[in-house]
Amino acid sequence: MSGGDFLNLLKKDGYGFGTPAASPYPMDPNGKTGLTSATTILAFKYKDGIMIAGDRRATAGTTVMHDRADKVIDIDRYAVMAIAGVPATAFEMARVLSHTFKYYRRSQLQDLSLEGKVRALSRLLKENAPMALQGVGAVAPIFAVYDPLIKEGRIYFYDILGAEFEVVEFATTGSGSPGIRGALHHHNKWSDTPANEAGEEEAIVLAMRLLETAAEFDVATSGVKKADNIFPTIKTIDKEGVHTVPLDRLNALYREKVSPNDV
């Protein structure tokens, strides 16, 4: 019996997560991996729960590889992981995490606790540390989850070694994040409606404006491409669970409130 531990079950089956590989990139003696975490993801609390959003661009160095990547991923009905970092590792982490939660629930006949879920992602990052330090697999995710006990959304961010930090209001990561971190702080401190008092529509507009701001100053973050119908991925988590904001709603709000003068 695996005691509800899906990662151990996979390992018994021969699966190796975070196994160090012979890397062509030597470790930087200063501890820098040289990796770009080229993206922008953010999560903040709004009136009904959590808003979590990410741009769609995937890059390799200065090359745009893909402009329709989904970096905000449903893990279960009440949890979402947004990824910044190496896509191969990040998507694999999301898959392991999703199976970990459902395997635990089905085998142990109860949901994994919120603390257990938060630690499960931390464990994956720790197991991936050798890869991250070799410069080939660093991931710095945001994990957002609805807590049924306190009936409130909670937001965590992680460093590439697995340290977890719970935030009070918002988290941003990725190469475009420094700019919008300041913008969001400014918004919460001095605007009439801080993010945690905003309704859903206001919060969606705020998330899109922040991502547009990040795209303005960070080439690795994509802005909206109306002609190609490319909009950010935006999800909400409330007491009903995870909801994905549909494309037509994003399109309408973008035209009306994010970039009304843009023809």
Binding site: M1, S2, F6, L9, L10, D13, Y15, R95, V96, H99, K102, Y103, R106, S107
Partner: peptide, 14 residues
Amino acid sequence: RNVILDMAHVEGFN
């Protein structure tokens, strides 16, 4: 139950 749970989840993941 544990046998098919393990089978199903490993297969679904792999």
